[in-house]
Design a binder for these strands. Sequence first.
DNA 1: ACTATGAATTTTGAATACAAATTGACGATG
DNA 2: CATCGTCAATTTGTATTCAAAATTCATAGT
Lengths: 230, 230
Amino acid sequence: MKDGLIPAPIARRPLHEELAEHLRQLIIECALEPGSKISEKDLCTQFAVSRTPLREALKLLATEGLVQLTPHRGASVTELTTEELEHIFPVMGALEALAGELACLHVTDAEIERAKKLQAELEAQHKSGDLRGYFRTNEEIHQLIFAAAQNPTLTQMSRSISGRVRRARYMANLSPTRWAAAVKEHRAILMALSKRDGERLGMLLKEHLANKFDVLREALFADLKAASSR
Amino acid sequence: MKDGLIPAPIARRPLHEELAEHLRQLIIECALEPGSKISEKDLCTQFAVSRTPLREALKLLATEGLVQLTPHRGASVTELTTEELEHIFPVMGALEALAGELACLHVTDAEIERAKKLQAELEAQHKSGDLRGYFRTNEEIHQLIFAAAQNPTLTQMSRSISGRVRRARYMANLSPTRWAAAVKEHRAILMALSKRDGERLGMLLKEHLANKFDVLREALFADLKAASSR
DNA sequence: ACTATGAATTTTGAATACAAATTGACGATG
DNA sequence: CATCGTCAATTTGTATTCAAAATTCATAGT
């Protein structure tokens, strides 16, 4: 029996994971407002599950930094402060840079081909103004690089940390000039990857990230002002 | 009211956290053998708690990568493979290097004083052959650097990743020559810190870590051979 | 004798029930 | 009138119970 063909991925996932995913989505989309207290009872009735798996899901999200658990006081959605963003940024930068370097060591020709395809998509989406699709493709390129790095630990770290800032993306709206610049940066990133120039790729990714965070910072700041004025 | 003095940390910690800590210790000390299946019932009777908090604790440890949870098949202690170690190493390296750089930006004179004290302890413990104490002091220096970096996110990342390899330390026994070399490296590290030379400190920490991992790799390899021969 | 099938036991997954702690309000007292 | 203390109601933390899945052992068939 050939072993790569049969694995029959009968993924029977436990309920708490399912729940965690849904909650994650809700938090990222800000359907659950940052800072708001989460009542277990309410969510239970809303999802039609008992408290046990819900609590397990909340514990999961707590380790991911999306919710805060205070003893006897329940869970609340963590709010993204500019301060926290300042702390997250350098860590993500280090991880991205590492991912770039490792990716260049392990990337296959097929992956480079795929990256080129994705880049073409990205440019098309930019031209047609498809912001939503652009975000998705962008995410895919990002994931491709991490996948090419062939380091599960790194991937996991990156996921857990980027989960915390991902919801900020939903608040931030790309300006046209920034969008154009981002596409250009992606072109350089693709170039470095296909040349397998790890050092350069790492640097580019870090810079790209820095620019991304500038946008986030701005959006977050605007959001804060809006919140305090109301 | 001065704000660093009153916080009255009447830490009323929930049971599952307490449990998680105990279990962590057990796993690190290899009291729970790597790869062994964990029976919820057994642990419940052993700790004299019900299954609910225990399960919550296990979920926590799962996100930390210390135990593996398979649906309907329970929890098992993850085993540390050399392969995983190869993956962890570069990530930790990147984090340590970053910590070094940030530490030099924020470190206070008082912290440097304390680092010097710890270094003196370290050398004394080396001289007197107090391996146990050496490990502890070593850990403290490490923590001091991360504390000086003033980045909670970075600290958290580092803790979660180093937790996975910490138990390997209990298996690895330092050779006299390696021990002496490590002390010397620490001297250089202290020097870079007190000069606030971030770039150099980052590099030194990364190198130091690389050497540490060499020892772990060896120990792990020896352990593997021992396991396969029996 | 060995393999395969199936029932019984064991173990995990989820729900409910019970206990402890916190919050808010109301009343008493200075 | 303000402040403190006490009590009730709500919510979280933990235990227990019920259901579903998996492992194991025994039996039957080849």
